[in-house]
């Protein structure tokens, strides 16, 4: 599926399917290369009262993977931080938005795949947002070269995840990032540039996914599409 001779600045093949879960408000499967993540969104709805906040929406995020469990909590917090910037928090005071992401199959770039899956689920559930977000992951190898959307083989301990959002004026901009390992300023900037270019490609993919979902698929609720990078 994924050609081995992929260039370093290119994303892997992405596939998605929307609304495949029966009970939640929004759901998606996102697959990049062989990494597959399922995400679901339900709410805004009620939750235990100690959890709610009086003036804004509360997020209940859980990212689960059975492959590398140490980072789960850090990723939870990161996703929450990103969602706070994208969802219109003030519109739904005293409610909670439940977000779950489950990695079913892991082949590198798991966190960015989770962000993309959550973003698609968010769009599918039609929660009011100020923008669309996506995630891009880059890793640094021993020679200091950057790999966009790394596979498990290419992944090292040094990696960085950018959460980007689409704006009307400036295209894609970064809203938050998560770093592991050592990154100097220069390399971070180079990574950010690469990430922004990739983000606009991902947004194009999202747009096409939703266009296909609502164009011809009235009978079965679900649409499947795959986008191969040319």
């Amino acid at each position: 599926m994924d050609p081995e001779n992929r260039q370093r600045g290119r994303l892997r093949t992405m596939r998605t399917s929307l609304g495949h879960l029966s009970r939640v408000d929004g759901s998606s499967i996102f697959q990049a290369g062989m990494t597959q993540v399922w995400a679901s969104i339900s709410g805004p709805g009620n939750a235990p009262s100690n959890f709610l906040e009086p003036d804004r929406i509360a997020f209940d995020v859980q990212f689960t993977t059975n492959f590398d469990q140490q980072k789960n909590e850090i990723v939870d917090a990161f996703i929450e931080r990103v969602l706070e910037k994208v969802v219109e928090c003030d519109l739904h005071p005293h409610t909670a938005l439940t977000v779950s992401a489950q990695v079913l199959q892991e082949d590198g770039s798991m966190i960015s795949a989770a962000l993309n899956a959550i973003s698609l689920a968010l769009l599918d559930s039609a929660v009011s947002c100020n923008s669309v977000m996506c995630g891009v992951q880059l890793s640094k190898d021993q020679d200091g070269r950057l790999h966009l959307d790394p596979k498990r083989k290419e992944e090292t301990g040094d990696f960085i995840v950018f959460a980007c959002k689409a704006t009307r004026e400036a295209g894609a901009t970064t809203i938050s990032s998560l770093k592991f390992g050592t990154w100097n300023d220069e390399l971070s900037k180079a990574a950010e540039e690469m990430a922004l270019a990739a983000a606009s490609e991902i947004f194009g993919f999202f747009r096409e996914a939703f266009q296909r979902q609502y164009r011809n698929d009235i009978f079965s609720k679900l649409a499947d599409l795959s986008l191969t990078e040319s």
């Binding site: 599926m1 596939r15 062989m34 597959q36 499947d224």
Partner: peptide, 17 residues
Amino acid sequence: QVVEGFSLVFDELLHTN
């Protein structure tokens, strides 16, 4: 050979009805 794994979900899972 290449094991497709859960990629097959896209082709098979979506036609439950």
